[in-house]
Design a protein around this nucleic acid. Sequence first.
DNA 1: CTGAAAGCGCTTACAG
DNA 2: CTGAAAGCGCTTACAG
Lengths: 336, 336
Amino acid sequence: MAQRSRRATIYDVAQAAGVSKSLVSLVLRGSPNVSQARRTAVLAAIEALDYRPSQAAATLAGGTSQTVGVVIDDYTNLWFVELLRGLQEGLGEAGLRIAVSDRTLNAHVQADPLEGFLSTRVEALVVATEPTETMRYPNQIPLVVAGNRQRQVPGSDLAASDDALGARLATEYLIALGHRHIGHISGGDGPSALRRQGYTQAMLAAGYEPHVITVMPQTTEEHGYRGAQRLFEEHPESTAVLAGNDSMAMGVLAAARDRGLLVPQDVSVIGYDNSPLSGTHLLRLTTVDSRNRDLGLQVAEQILSKLAEPDRAAQVIQLEPRLIERGSCHTPRTTL
Amino acid sequence: MAQRSRRATIYDVAQAAGVSKSLVSLVLRGSPNVSQARRTAVLAAIEALDYRPSQAAATLAGGTSQTVGVVIDDYTNLWFVELLRGLQEGLGEAGLRIAVSDRTLNAHVQADPLEGFLSTRVEALVVATEPTETMRYPNQIPLVVAGNRQRQVPGSDLAASDDALGARLATEYLIALGHRHIGHISGGDGPSALRRQGYTQAMLAAGYEPHVITVMPQTTEEHGYRGAQRLFEEHPESTAVLAGNDSMAMGVLAAARDRGLLVPQDVSVIGYDNSPLSGTHLLRLTTVDSRNRDLGLQVAEQILSKLAEPDRAAQVIQLEPRLIERGSCHTPRTTL
DNA sequence: CTGAAAGCGCTTACAG
DNA sequence: CTGAAAGCGCTTACAG
């Protein structure tokens, strides 16, 4: 039935439908200036020929790829999933496609995912990872950095959750619960630095001594585990721990268990990110929600506005995080 | 410095380097038939003009996109990550790019991710999700289905882990440990059906009664939790549980804990997938490794061979899984 | 080793 | 509402 022959082109469709190829193009792009009869004929021909327009030709001829590129750091670091959802929602109206790439996906053909996107002529770029100095940033298309990062990209928009505020909220929550010996396990990236700040501020404001254990360079369960071990050793009086994120919190839970401490009876634990993990029956982790979906919506808006007005000044948008109460916190066992 | 003007094209580079544009094309594609002096000049011009070749033009003119598309079901379902790594490794030599899309990413512009890939003129397609009947499968490019699925795609290659064998290995391991009351929590997808088979076989072979709890339609922690609750209620004599995958195993752990059962002392638990989750300090989950990276390597090979010889018959490749022993299993508390 | 020419499959004005 | 023409930025033979 289907021949392995040459692919159908717009010419074939035009011929089969008995119209010119411009007309086919109009139908494809949903123009209202096409008679019903011809539209039907074209659609039938498309179906019959199993025709699919060539994205390459459309991009080349139209001068626009209609896609925005998103660079993430790692598929296992799930915070980007909700961001993507928000982006998709926000970009829907405009009909922009989304393409995702992590650092390693095409490392065999291109050192830098940005290069690939730039060659693809994306309309805009979202950098949802720590920007590197080797990246050559485009200045001809909108670029928005998503999330709090250590490095700035001059001229780019920025959309991030207020990580300092989130950590402050979490710490104040523990303090309100009656805790005063609260430790913090922190990592080495952009959000970590801000969360550390928020934690420290809240502790000092309450007149308590902050205990920060910084584990470099990652923020995995393993790092959380090691950090918590150190905390429990150096500060056995700790009755609560704020972890740098949910993965690290999972490590904290493991360290507590291995030390014979019950959560939340002996020690309260708070995570950060409201990841799928935190909502499981096994963890029931109280955490901070960064509202990444809303973040994605904001990023979409920034892209759209910059596309409409390329000369507008760079924007910085900050979202307010909120605390999600679940089952990992309690009043301290012994109120001193 | 950088003008927001028109993008540099191959013409601009040729002119700046004082060569013809064919020569620039040769340099870009790494041809050896270019003198050192001219190559240097071209490279300098590319750098100076911040030139990036247009992927669209290259695809259109060259008649090949040099990319293979991978359809996954969901970014939160992490089994594809290792698959991607293997694919990347295997495709590296050939210089093929990888593009990933899940079902929802571009749902606002295209109902089906396949359509997008087909418009992009990918060289091959990897379907790492349950094929749907609405998908129009191409017959002109290699298609390989990765993982065990319920639906077949006629003419496509298949690469999967032997899920029945994996479940049998896990069950036999528990039996060897002395367990005879072993339950299985299963889901509703392709791998689930096979794992169920393997479990049942092993139980019957040992002369024990299989207890399967099937929770539809998903295979999440929540489903594992509910399934285990039912198992513990209906079969309180159970001393071991084989979960359909690691996420479900996590739910089993939670259900055991909520029932006051210790793992592994009171009940042994085995997962499936060897996901990042299973290796955490908190879970220390004994699990089955499907060797997804090797699977990716196999898929790459299938693609390459089909590209070289389009008429070769469809292949089915099955990999042997292996058991990963960690800390969630023990001999049964009371040997009956 | 290098250059001129044709063509890939579309979109976009521009006439009718 | 519809068609003929030019052109997008490359690659690929094909001559030299």
